[in-house]
Structures are given as structure tokens and as C-alpha cells.
Simulated assay, not measured.
Amino acid sequence: MPIIALLINACVAFTGFYLISKVFHSQLFFSSRGRGVLIGILAGLLGLFLMFNGVEVNESVRVDLRHLPLVLLAFYGARLPLFVATAFIGSTRFLFGVTDQAVIAFVATWFVSIGMLWIHRRLAERVFLQSMLLNVWALSVISVAVLINLGWSVAYFTLIATIWTVGMSVGLLSSALTIDLEQTTRQSKDYKQSAERDHLTGLFNRRVWDRYTSELGTKQRTYNVLALDIDHFKRVNDTYGHANGDLVLQRFAELLLIETRSHDLVARIGGEEFVILMYDLPVEKVEKVAERIRKRIEHEVFVLNDFPPIHITASIGIAHGKSEPIQKMTEAADDALYEAKHSGRNQVVLTNVNERSLVLN
């Protein structure tokens, strides 16, 4: 019976939804583009399975639930995966033969996807309504495509009634499943960020810093620890208020992210105390980077609320070494920072931990 076959396909589609959603939210891929192509291929394969297991109405007309993976991708607003899956699903329809019905199905598949992107843009914040309208739009286009193939007949109305009954039932369940997966993933990300990020600046906190640096001494790799401190920050809080002090800290953190590489570890470990971990930079290069950061902060205009903009400066201590325990490197960076502050502030001081160890020995 057509309805039984469509329900079995719906169960397969739900499993595919779950797997594709997991890949969509995964951070294990080298680029967002590569992940997008992979998601599009997976959705296309799911659509191909649903197509091959569709209901054959007659020798030239088949009905299936291939639109469901497209609904999922449109719900996420995943344009690249949606186009990849649409091209995949639409083209493979010709595996059943190059016929007028195949051409109609190809055009209808693209029409479904383009319309769903429009719906997503208009209703992105109203997730349940959006998801249901995506299904309604897809079923409407399918109904027109089937009408072109079958014409007005009792068989057409019987088939369309089955398609809409199963399609809307599956659409309701798939909407609930997709929304639940999305909310669960967002909550998980929020909890993780709350545990790993400084609430004010968005930088990593001390917990993350300790975790990432705990085994540095066992790696045969050169690295640098930069300790940074805003000069006379207490004066900023006392003069302009703690709210403006927070604005200064937030902009300071933004500047650190701008002036460092994406794979450098930048963390806030105290009130106005920041640290940066930089791998594989020689002494000359890390000094230039630190000096660039110092100058950027010195020349930056920090905008405050209800007060004129101000300028601040920062002192930076650097510990340079290879295969040294993080505790030793941190102490060396703190010592260098202390020297910078007591030598007039707004300076960069570097300590080569390996050379210092040789002198001490």
C-alpha cells in the first residue's frame, strides 16, 4: 500500500535528519565549506534513498519523500548544502529515464528549494511556523507536478490525499524533531561557552588556560607566554566608574584578538590581567608581535559612556622557551611583566627561559 511505503520512508528520513543535524553542528571539519558540501551530499544520498523507495503510481510517475532532506537544510538556512542536495536529488531523477516526467521532477525540485529559502528568510525566528510552511510549500509544488503528469482524475485525488496525509504528519513530527535537536544543541553550546569563556570579554578563562597549557612541558615545541596588564587600570575604574572600566576591558580584549592569530590562545585570568600563548615564533618575531600589540593599545581611542574618550597603555612580559613546564614559563612572563611595569610601564620585556636556565646551572 502507498501509505505504508511512505511511512517506512518517513522513519528512514527521521534517522537521516538526526545524523545530518549532528554533522551540521559538528566542529570536527577543516572548513565550513567542506562541511557544507559533505552535508549536501549526505542529504542528497538520503533523498536518493527515498526516491528509489518511492511509490510507483504507474510506469512513468513515482511519488516519494525526497523533499524532506531539503526541508531540513532550508530550516537551517544552509544555502550551500541545500544547493548541493538539490542538484544531487534533481539530477538523479534521470536515473529512471530521461522523460518528460523526469524533467518536471527536476524543475520542481529546484522550485521547492528556492521557495523554501525565501520562506526561511521571512520566518527564521518563528521556527515552528517556518518548518510547517516549508512542508506545505514542498507538498504544494509536488501536487502541481503530479497534476501535470496525471491530470485531473480519481487516481490523482487519491494519490494527493495520501501524499498530503503522510507528508503533513511526517512534516509535523520532523518539525518537532528538528526544533528539539536545534534547541538541545544550542543549550549545550551555551553551557560549554559559559564554562569556558570569561563572561565579560568572551575570551577563554583560567580553567581553559590551565587545561590547554598543562602538558606544554612534554612537547618538543617552542612557545611563548605573554602576560599583559593594563597600566593604572584602578585609576580608570575610580575616575570613570566600573561600567566604563568594563567597556575598556572589552575593547582591550577585542584588540588582542585582532592582533593575534586565530590559533593563538588568548585568555583573561584576572581583573585586568591577560595572557596569550603563541607557538613557533622565534624571539625576534614574538617581540615584534608584542610591540605591535602595545602600540595598537597605546594609539587606540577607548570610547566611554558619559565621558570623553580616553587613551590607555599596557605593559607586556614575554617568556620564550622550548619544552618548559607552563608554571616556569608563567613565572618568567610575570617577572618580565613586573620589570616592564617598574621600568616605566608601556613597555615590552622578554625573558628567554632556556638561556636563563643555562645561566642558573
Score class of each variant (00 low, 15 high):
Ser21Val: 00
Thr351Arg: 13
Ala195Asp: 07
Val141Phe: 05
Ile160Thr: 10
Leu95Gln: 10
Thr178Leu: 05
Phe128His: 03
Ala314Thr: 15
Tyr212Val: 06
Glu300Arg: 07
Ala176Lys: 07
Gly151Pro: 00
Ser140Tyr: 12
Lys192Cys: 06
Ser357Asn: 10
Ser357Ile: 02
Arg221Ala: 13
Tyr191Glu: 09
Ser315Ile: 03
Asn346Arg: 15
Val84Ile: 05
Ser26Arg: 09
Ile293Phe: 06
Phe302His: 05
Tyr156Asp: 01
Trp152Thr: 06
Ala138Pro: 03
Leu173Asp: 02
Arg126Lys: 11
Ala74Leu: 08
Val349Leu: 09
Asp264His: 06
Glu273Leu: 15
Ala78Ile: 01
Lys22Ile: 03
Ile163Val: 15
Leu255Arg: 05
Ser262Asn: 12
Thr165Ser: 14
Leu255Trp: 04
Leu173Ile: 08
Ile20Ala: 01
Ser357Arg: 09
His25Pro: 00
Trp209His: 06
Met1Gln: 11
Ser169Met: 15
Ile104Phe: 04
Ser31Phe: 08
Pro282Gly: 08
Val225Asn: 00
Ala290Met: 04
Val286Leu: 06
Gly217Ala: 12
Pro81Trp: 07
Ile104His: 02
Lys288Pro: 00
Arg296Met: 09
Ser343Glu: 15
Ser131Asn: 11
Leu46Asp: 00
His299Gly: 13
Ala74Thr: 01
Ile258Glu: 09
Phe96His: 09
Phe252Thr: 01
Glu355Leu: 14
Val98Met: 14
Asp180Gln: 15
Leu46Ala: 06
Leu257Phe: 03
Trp110Ile: 02
Gly54Gln: 11
Val84Gln: 00
Val236Asn: 01
Phe49Glu: 09
